[in-house]
Amino acid sequence: MNFLAVIGRITFGFLQAAGRLGIFAATTISHMVTPPFYFRSLIQQMMTIGYYSLPVVGLTALFTGAALALNIYEGGSRFNAESALPTIVVIGIVRELGPVLCGLIVAGRVSASMAAEIGTMRVTEQIDAMSTLSTDPFKYLIAPRVVATTLMMPFMLVIVADIIGVMGGFLIATGKLGFNAGNYMDLTMDFLEIKDIYASLTKAAVFGFFISLMGCYHGYYSRGGAQGVGIATTNAVVSACMLILLSNYIVTEIFFAT
């Protein structure tokens, strides 16, 4: 086999996929900002994505905050820095763990379900049927999902994850590690900057956009029946998680690189 031909084929395939994704994203954004808007569908998606993800996001944040507090206390005690626990918990949760863990959980839950739903609609000709009924699938199916996820991630899920995550650390610190509740809260509030909150919400919005974009993109281009839908679902989750971790670094660099 010609080695150069293989490299060429892989490069060509990658560029083709990147171009198709770029066009898909641009089309989605243009449909997000131009009428008609399907508010009914948007509210339904906001409920499904935001409200119904709250329990799993809340539990994840609670246990992560608690475990983080234990780890920092034990690690900090090696050089007499236990008192830094509230500061590290709040910065760790708000800047990093809240948005990233929430993003990964929502990617697993929402991106997979979007890819499966839209993929099934594709292979059963429901998307074609929508087009013949003078309804643009980008407007009716994709734009409401992307808008809903991009709004719900920062303004519901990550805010809740940040608060519950900090609360998890607080409960362990005051209940088990002997911290004074008043002092703990004072230290938390003193060291939390507005910039940390902006970074957290920016990350959440970016993650939300990528989660829904990947779910919709892989579902929309799925083919080949049940197996195709299965592949689309897996690809949606994997690519959403990769984009979350990549964009997490980029947003952190933008906000905090000195």
Partner: peptide, 20 residues
């Protein structure tokens, strides 16, 4: 295209009804 599309009605092979 949308104006032309409004002249059309289509019955799909598997009916293609919206499950949701």
């Amino acid at each position: 295209r949308k104006r032309i599309q409004e002249k059309f009605g289509m019955l799909f092979q598997g009916a293609a009804l919206f499950d949701s």
